[in-house]
């Protein structure tokens, strides 16, 4: 049973398309990163999965049922962007209220508050909470009733680095127990180590989906090698010049090192030649990061979009 399955889903808001022909699914025990600039359709996709809206076209099935059915939503945890709570209630009261609504055991309430590090503040009114504390309470709320599908929109906003690391560790544990997790974030380097697959949305359509290896292959972006010469830079340069068959190589010198951008399929040939020559003392290889891939798929218009991002 998939956590969710979007098939050829389109959604129009006042006739202007927000989502177009989206095919996306999430299996249990998987963390999917959902990326795109604001207005690309991330929140709309999440709202469709939550059953808050009906697609104009296509089908949305969630946890083997229909999106929005009470039996389905009972097993979904959701942390909205900029989560807010009733300011006059305490953290414990709020979590108890939501636990009752979800049909979750009230015994979970103190446990979850402890798990997110709010055990000292659970009896303080949430109007005294900082942004990070609200975010943690939001997280505790999403974890009520042990969800099978967890959707987190910008979960790390306002969290300090330690809390962020705790959060990701927790998400990994949940994933290993079989929870399907969707993670929306703009902090790409932060989420990169934790996601199993990434989906990149632009202007309502899916630009790319897959694990990072597949996305790198699809993007076909150059790998950067950073080489320390054993003897002299010029000798190393000659070796590389001789080894490279195709054009498109970029050679730069900085601090006595060589940086070489190489196409992925030529990488091994070049490495072998360099190693055999004995002219290299050290090599480090930089794969394109999630951020590089993201910028690649968003295209040159990306900067303009990102302007409205923050």
């Amino acid at each position: 049973m998939s956590c969710f399955r979007l098939e050829n889903v389109s959604y129009r808001y006042d006739k202007s398309p927000v989502l177009q022909g989206i095919d996306l699914r999430l299996e249990p025990g998987e963390i999917l990163g959902l990326f795109g600039h604001n207005g690309a359709g991330k929140t709309t996709s999440i709202k469709l999965i939550l059953g808050l809206m009906q697609p104009t076209q296509g089908t949305v099935s969630v946890l083997g049922g229909h999106a929005g059915d009470p039996q389905v939503t009972q097993h979904i945890g959701y942390l909205p962007e900029n989560v807010m709570f009733y300011p006059q209630l305490t953290g414990r009261e709020i979590l108890s209220h939501f636990a009752r609504l979800k049909g979750a055991s009230l015994r979970q309430v103190p446990e979850l508050l402890k798990q997110v590090g709010l055990d000292d503040a659970m009896d303080a009114r949430t109007k005294t909470y900082s942004k990070g504390m609200r975010q943690r309470l939001g997280l505790a709320q999403a974890l009520l009733g042990k969800p099978k599908l967890l959707m987190l929109d910008e979960p790390t906003v306002g969290l300090d680095p330690v809390a962020t690391a705790d959060l990701y560790r927790l998400l990994r544990e949940l994933r290993d127990e079989g929870t399907g997790i969707v993670l929306c974030s703009h902090v790409l380097p932060g989420v990169e180590p934790y996601i199993d697959r990434a989906a990149i949305l632009t202007e309502g359509s899916l630009q790319a989906v897959g694990d990072l290896t597949a996305l790198r292959r699809q993007a076909n972006m150059p790998v950067t090698l950073s080489l320390d010469p054993a003897n002299s830079i010029s000798a190393l340069e000659r070796v590389i010049d001789k080894a490279s068959t195709s054009s498109g190589l970029m050679i730069k010198t900085d601090n006595g090192r060589l940086r070489v951008d190489v196409q992925p399929r030529e990488k091994m040939a070049l490495l072998k030649a360099v190693m055999a020559s004995g002219e290299v003392a050290d090599i480090s290889i930089h794969q394109p990061s999630l951020e590089d891939i993201y910028v690649h798929f968003i295209g040159s218009g990306g900067l303009a979009h990102r302007g409205g991002n923050q």
């Binding site: 808050l52 979904i76 900029n82 009733y86 939501f98 609504l101 979800k102 049909g103």
Partner: peptide
């Protein structure tokens, strides 16, 4: 306005 309506509607509550 308090931001809780959206959250409530994601619960098993019509």
């Amino acid at each position: 306005e308090g931001g809780t309506l959206l959250l409530l509607m994601t619960y098993p509550l019509s």
